[in-house]
Amino acid sequence: MSFYLAIIGSKDNAIYSLDFGTYRQGGDGTSKFSADVRQLCPFIVHSSLDIIEEVQWTNSAMHLKVIDKFYNYLISAYVTSGNIKFLLLHETRADEVIRQFFVDLYDLYVKTLMSPFYSVDQAITSKVFDQRVKMLAKKYL
């Protein structure tokens, strides 16, 4: 199974993205997207932003669960109180696990925000952040 994670800022700008695979069932943590799909990932994920914009006002939860579908792929979304969106493209439905993943990712994001050298909506380039996200992926997905 493969995943594509994107963090979108409050101005709908991309802050961070990562594609990875599962470690379960003998996976090695790398994504198995075909070349075409890999290119499409950002488009699929970004196109669900419109749906989020509607749902976020009727549902006050942070985890909006699966909000969009694209053929076999599902898109889960999590919106923080500062309107930063976490989007995950995945293949099977697993709301609870994904929620835990998002909550821990939120923790990491806020830690980034606590750095005085980071400002809201700036792209996250930290290697440590990258490493921690991969650890979370390994733990939950």
Partner: peptide
């Protein structure tokens, strides 16, 4: 900007968006 997110994370158990 920072306090908003920090306050939410600290109360993540019953956090919701306003």
């Amino acid at each position: 900007q920072r306090v908003l997110e920090l306050a939410t994370v600290r109360e993540i158990k019953n956090a919701k968006r306003e």
